[in-house]
Simulated assay, not measured.
Amino acid sequence: MRTLHIAGAGMVRFGKFPASVTFEQLACGAARAAMQDAGASRKDIEAVFVGHVFGGPVAGQRVAVELGLGGLPVSNHENYCASGATALREAWLAVAAGLYEVALVIGAEKMTDRIKGGVAPDPSDLDAMQGFIMTAGHALSARRYMADHGATREQIAMVAVKNHEHSQHNPYAHYQNPVSLEQVLAARPVADPLGVLDCSPISDGAAAAVVCSREGLRRLGIVEAKPVVRGIGLVSGSLRTGLHDLNEEDISRRAGEQAYALTGVDPEDIDLVEMHDCFTIAEIVRLEGLGLIPRGEGARWTQDGHTRVGGRLPVNASGGLLSRGHPVGATGMAQVCELYWQLSGRAGGRQVRDARLGLAYCKGGTVSGTDGGSVTTVVVSA
């Protein structure tokens, strides 16, 4: 397969925007920033791949027209929280197949005028019919993890403390202020034991990248080395019968194994991780599911500072979903932008020293009776 390079990346700051700020404006803002970073003009772009959930069936086409890219091949990718990374995966495969030399990938979402309160599965899903919301599922996960591994409420809360500490140095983050352990523990309860600071916010935002083959780099006049997308795993939830450990994260294990097989890397080779921490406990159990942290030790790793910038395995240097924000269609591409900046040495005060290999993980959606909807694992190297 041909190599996929990230020639440039761009984001708009995540946050809560008024209704007058549209999905298209957010997406175009990130896309223009990525094109400027790559030195790419409109005539250089050969195809557009757009990940989103609530943008509508031809959201990508609307964005392309506003960018002056109307008439190009445009595809829309909806895979819930994994949508942005799924769009990147399709661009990777298209460039690898020789269809294009230069492509634009965008992840975008306008959520704050569409989503209120807890996010639930699709209304037709059996879990949704029983009143299930995502927070409740992760609260059960936290309780089970604490019972099985002796983890404390304080250890789980430290994920939020760490990620908010990191986001102080991320100009694109929704929140850019530190929080204390006492603030996390005293925050308004949502689903015991999780409080509001254990939950990622409803956000608006967009992130984008210009990706290309080696020939594409030459066309853009780029001579310096650029980060390479080594491979992207994609798995969906499998049907589960009988009794299962709530935190077994088999879908994460399978996604990790697929990524490691595609790229030829070992979990021990990973220098930093952008993890889908929609809730504090999710960061812990998914790191363990990927084989990056020994089973049952994630909470202690967090408490001991191993997952901070400067630790053994820095996780969510960007602030993660908890602090950078979680506009669902944009999240996967925001993670990839962060890996690009980290591996290019351009991450400022949150820079991970000597980072050479990064992994981004997204898990999106639920399907009743399975271990999840979809998971993407993106491996990027310097």
Score class of each variant (00 low, 15 high):
L287R: 01
V63C: 10
L262G: 13
G29S: 00
Q130R: 13
H244I: 10
Y100V: 02
S200M: 04
N170W: 04
V273E: 02
H52N: 15
G117A: 08
H77T: 07
N79M: 15
P121L: 05
N163I: 01
G256A: 14
P18Q: 02
A173I: 06
P327T: 07
V190N: 08
I106R: 12
V12M: 06
D148I: 06
L313F: 00
H174V: 05
R346Q: 14
V196I: 15
Y175K: 13
T135Y: 06
G319L: 01
G311K: 05
R89F: 14
D37N: 13
L234F: 15
D113M: 03
Q25N: 01
G319T: 05
G289F: 03
G237I: 07
L239P: 00
W301G: 10
G264C: 09
H164P: 03
V95M: 15
G150Q: 09
K43M: 12
G137E: 00
E274R: 02
F132I: 01
A255I: 09
Q258T: 14
A299P: 02
P123C: 02
T263P: 04
P193Q: 11
D245V: 06
D44S: 13
P193L: 10
P201V: 12
T86C: 12
E46F: 05
H166K: 03
G55Q: 07
S83P: 03
L26P: 04
I202S: 08
R253E: 09
L4H: 08
I202P: 04
V179E: 10
D245Y: 11
G305L: 01
L181A: 12
Y172K: 13
E274V: 01
V309T: 11
E90K: 14
R143M: 13
V50E: 01
D371W: 06
Y172Q: 12
G221P: 07
G55N: 05
V367Y: 00
R240S: 09
G242M: 01
D198K: 07
Q130S: 12
D204I: 02
G320A: 05
C362F: 01
S323L: 06
H276C: 08
A355P: 05
A97F: 14
T366R: 10
E249K: 12
V74R: 05
L339G: 03
L194H: 04
D371C: 04
